[in-house]
Amino acid sequence: MNSQRNLCLLAVVDDPGEAGQLQLAVQQIGFAVKLYVASDYLEALQFLHQQGERFQCAPRPDLILLDIKMSGQEYLAFLVTAKQDEHLRAIPVVIMATSELEADVRAAYHHGAAGYVLKPADINEFAGTINKLGQYWFERIRLPENCSICTDVARAINE
C-alpha cells in the first residue's frame, strides 16, 4: 500500500461536463487524492513537462486517467508519447472510454495502458467506478514515490 502522502491524479477530459462529475467522484473517494484536469492532450503534456508559467509547479502525477468520448487515434498518440518518454513512462495510464470494440480495447493495452474501463452512463455508477479505480490504484497498488530516481533507473535498464 502507498504511504499517507497526497496522491496526484491527472485526468484528461475532453468533455467539460464530465470534469465536474469526476471532481465530485474523486471527492467522495475518501483517499487523499488531488485531481488535476487537463482539457486536451497538449495541455496534459505541458502539465507533465511543467511547461509554461501555468504549469511550472505542476506535480508529477501518480496516475493518469484518459477520459475519452470516442475511439480515436488522438489518445493513442498521447499514450505512445507518454510511454516513449523516459521521464513519464513509469506513470500508469488508465483509459476510460465508451467504446466496447475489441480493437479499441486491444489497442489500449498494446500501447501500454494499465486498464481500460467502460464509462458508465449513470452518474451514480460513474462515482462507483471512480471509487473502484481508487481502491486499486490508491489503496492496494504500490506506486513510485521517489521519481528523482526514474532517470537513473531508466539509464540502468537501457545499459
Binding site: P92, I141, L143, E145, C147, I157
Partner: peptide
Amino acid sequence: SDVERDIVASYHLGASGYVT
C-alpha cells in the same frame, strides 16, 4: 520487495500494477 528501485523499474518496464 518494497524497494523503490524495483517499483520504479517495474512500471518503467510496463507493469500494470505492483503489489507487495
